[in-house]
Amino acid sequence: MKRTHLLSAGLLSLFSTFALSATFTFTAIPDADESNLRTRFEKVADYLSEQLDVEVKYIPVKSYSAAITAFRNNQVQLAWFGGLSGVQARGLVPGSEAIAQGFEDQYFKSYLIANHSVDIKSFDDFPVLNNYTFTFGSKGSTSGRLMPQFFIEKNLGKPVEQIFKRIGFSGDHSRTISQVEAGVYQVGAVNYKVWDTAVEKGQVDTSKVKVIWESPTYPDYQWTVHSGVDNDFGAGFKEKLTQVLIGMTDKDLLASFPRSSFIPAKNSDYQPIERVAKTIGMID
């Protein structure tokens, strides 16, 4: 009797999403430096584990879409998403919530940068980009794709395919900078923090590439938590998690994201992103 019970429990746990996973798992991809991901975020995991009193594990991922899939399949219960990927993930997992964002993410922005060989005129405070070659960052990026495309299409009144001679996806903000610097593309869209950091560290030759336009601000990165965590890790877990994230003050830990601090956030903060994504047809 007991044996069959054990057996069926074992089988169930193989095939059930809600098998009690004693480990709380999260993922994060920072918008800038991706080197030594595991080493850096395992420290974050240690911090969370200590504060939350559960085992916490970090899973490294390569792309926002992989992070979304892991979140959707409940392989991770917490994720550091970009604005767009957060909206997509919450759309796929009913009941999931944005609980905290970076201080900087309340008013994030993008830059358009151009190679020094092109002389771009502005009209109504927006550069006239017709017939240049252009690169976005990665396909699913908020600051390197979604918002720049939205602003360009709104200001120039045409879909990007009709504006630019050639459109590329560099895959990464730092690569956008190096490609525009080398003239592979004449113009590019980049996350403002990545650009500012690169300039600060002298990793970019500002005589070859310069900022030509700065976007209005919009909300970006946020921590999104899975709907089932209170069930799996005890009542009030979500609230406790929010407090622990906001209470993260260790500079070393915050530098991994990199953010100066975390503040509370809610799903409705990201309605503008959702609207924009629908406008340009990235979500249905």
């Binding site: 991706e34 080197s35 991901l37 490294p60 390569k62 990464d172 730092s174 690569r175 190096s178 990793q203």
Partner: peptide
């Protein structure tokens, strides 16, 4: 995993 990140990020 590391090769791609390293080249992509310079």
């Amino acid at each position: 995993f590391y090769l791609e990140s390293a080249f992509r990020q310079g």
